[in-house]
Simulated assay, not measured.
Amino acid sequence: MTNDNDDLSRRRLLATTGTLSLTGLAGCLGSGGGGGSDHGDKQLSDQRDRSLPDGAETCVSTQGIERDLEGLSAKEDVGYQFHPNYTGASGFIELCANCQFFCPGNQFDAGVGACAAVEGGIYSQDWCALWQPVEGLEERDGSGARGSQTKIGK
């Protein structure tokens, strides 16, 4: 008889522990906990809605290319993406920060830059199909270079 009570106690312990574990896991995964995907989705949508900083309408890129308001492309038309291109033919991590068309945000006292070829606000870590390396990028060996200039597979 004592043996049956021990089995019953073990079953209760295991059932209670399992229920508490699942409840805790559900709480961690919920959107109210701050760790859910709602926050990440909102952050992405905030980036997509970023407007062009004041003073960037007629910016000049780091390579001296002037922004032509009449010749700008829409982000949708150039395959604009909100992350770097790790598989480009250049062998480098391709992103706006090391593109010849990029106008850095620090020129405008903003966290977002502009592009001499693409409409709207541009983040340094983004990429589009118009990407062209800044002059001299191919000659750099990556030793001591920032991540945006590092050769892939080195």
Rank of each mutant, 00 (worst) to 15 (best):
N3H: 10
D4Q: 10
N5E: 15
D7F: 12
L8R: 07
S9R: 13
R10Q: 08
R10H: 12
R11T: 13
R12T: 11
L13H: 11
L13S: 13
L14Q: 10
L14H: 08
L14T: 14
T16A: 14
T17E: 11
T17I: 15
G18T: 09
T19H: 04
T19V: 04
T19W: 04
L20A: 15
S21A: 12
L22A: 13
L22M: 15
T23D: 03
G24T: 10
G27V: 09
G27K: 11
G30L: 08
S31C: 09
G32A: 11
G32P: 01
G32Q: 08
G33M: 06
D38M: 08
H39G: 10
H39N: 12
H39W: 12
G40R: 12
G40A: 14
K42I: 15
Q43G: 06
Q43W: 06
Q43K: 11
Q47H: 07
D49Y: 06
R50M: 10
L52G: 05
G55M: 10
G55W: 05
A56M: 03
E57Y: 07
T58I: 03
C59W: 01
V60K: 06
Q63C: 09
G64W: 04
I65W: 01
I65P: 01
E66I: 07
L69R: 08
E70V: 06
G71S: 15
S73E: 13
A74L: 10
E76L: 06
E76T: 08
E76Q: 11
V78G: 01
Y80K: 01
Q81R: 14
Q81D: 04
F82P: 02
P84Q: 08
N85F: 02
Y86G: 11
Y86A: 15
T87F: 14
G88L: 04
A89Q: 08
A89K: 12
A89Y: 02
F92D: 00
F92T: 02
I93L: 14
E94N: 12
L95N: 15
L95A: 13
A97I: 01
N98P: 07
C99K: 04
Q100S: 15
C103L: 05
C103S: 10
C103W: 00
C103T: 00
G105E: 00
N106D: 08
Q107R: 14
Q107K: 14
F108S: 00
D109V: 07
D109T: 09
A110I: 01
V112E: 02
G113C: 00
A114S: 08
A117D: 10
I122E: 01
Q125H: 12
W127A: 00
A129T: 12
W131V: 03
W131P: 00
Q132D: 11
P133V: 10
E139G: 10
E139C: 03
D141H: 01
D141C: 03
D141M: 05
G142M: 05
S143F: 12
